[in-house]
Design a protein around this nucleic acid. Structure first.
Lengths: 145, 145
DNA sequence: ATTATACCCCGGTTTTTTACTGGGGTTTGT
DNA sequence: ACAAACCCCAGTAAAAAACCGGGGTATAAT
C-alpha cells in the first residue's frame, strides 16, 4: 500500500501551513511548492480540493494565499485523506448489491483492515507531525555535533 | 483504499480451493473462473503468482489443477496480499535516503497505518472466511423461510 | 505411442488512474 | 490601473491495472 503523491503533497503543504499558523499570514502556492519541491500547478489543484473540503481557507488577490481553516491540532490526517481520496475511499462501503456472499465476506474483512488504518490516521494531527519534525531536526543537530 | 481486482480474484479462488481442500482433488482454472465469474486467462496469471509464492501447488496435465499448498487455517490473508502486491507494498519500507525530514515523518505515520491494517489481515485465515461464508449461507436460508 | 487435458511462459493490448501542464478569468491590495 | 494571487476547466503524458492470445510442456488415459 503505497502512499499516493497526492496525499503526500497535500500533507506537506498542510505542514507548512501549520508551521506558519501562528503568524496569521497566508502562504502562497509558489512558496509552498518551492519549499517542498512540488509542481506548483498540481499543488494548486490539491489546495483547491482542500479548500472545498473545508480544511484550508484562501485569500485571493495580492498578498493572498492559504491558511488552515482551523487549528493544527484539530486536523487529524484522516480528514486530509478523506478529503482527497473521498470518504468512500477511506472507508469503502460494502454495497448491499453484493454480487455474491464470498465477495461481501471479503469486503467486510477489507473494510475492517481499512478501519484499523484509519484509526491510526485519526489519532495523528498536523500538530503532531509538526512536533515530530522539530524533534527530528533537534536530533539531527545533536548528531551533527 | 479500494481492494484491487487482483486481490479479490485471488482470494475468491483460494476460497474455492480451501472449500475443496479435504477432497484432495485439484480444481481447474476454468472451474474456478466459471464459479466466481473471473476472466480465466487473468486468473491463470494470479494462480501462477500464488504458486511461485508458495501458497498453492499445481498439477500439470490431464486431471490437473491447483490445490492449497497448506491447510486453510494456516493461510492468513496477509500472505495472499504480500504475495500479490509484494511485501514492500504491504509494509512500505521508509527509505533511509529520506529526501526531507517532513517526508520521512509522513512515511512513518503511513507505515504505522499500514501495519495496523496488516494486523487485521494477519488474523483472518482462509479458513475463517470459509466459515463466514457457510454461516452467511445459513442465515440466508433462515431469512428465506 | 497417441491424444486430449490442463498448466506454463511470455508478450501485447486496452482501460483506468495518477500525475502533471496550460490558458484564460477573477479578486484584491497598493 | 496594475500586478499579485487564486480560480476554473480542460487537456496530456506516464504509469499501473486488467485483460487477452499464441505457442509450448507435462501428464493421465486410451
Amino acid at each position: 500500500m503505497e502512499l499516493s503523491c497526492k496525499s503526500e503533497y497535500a500533507i506537506l503543504a498542510l505542514l507548512e501551513l501549520a508551521a506558519s499558523y501562528q503568524s496569521g499570514e497566508p502562504l502562497q502556492i509558489r512558496q509552498i511548492a518551492a519549499q517542498q519541491d512540488i509542481p506548483d500547478r498540481y499543488l494548486e489543484q490539491l489546495l483547491a480540493t482542500l479548500r472545498r473540503g473545508g480544511l484550508v481557507k484562501s485569500q485571493r488577490g495580492a498578498k493572498g494565499g492559504y491558511v488552515l481553516a482551523r487549528e493544527p491540532w484539530k486536523i487529524p490526517l484522516l480528514d486530509v485523506f478523506s478529503c482527497l481520496e473521498g470518504l468512500d475511499a477511506a472507508v469503502p462501503e460494502l454495497d448491499s448489491s453484493a454480487k455474491t456472499i464470498e465477495r461481501s465476506v471479503i469486503q467486510e474483512v477489507w473494510q475492517e483492515a481499512c478501519q484499523a488504518a484509519n484509526l491510526v490516521l485519526q489519532k495523528y494531527t498536523l500538530q503532531d507531525l509538526c512536533e515530530q519534525r522539530t524533534a527530528r531536526r533537534q536530533m539531527d543537530i545533536m548528531y551533527y555535533i
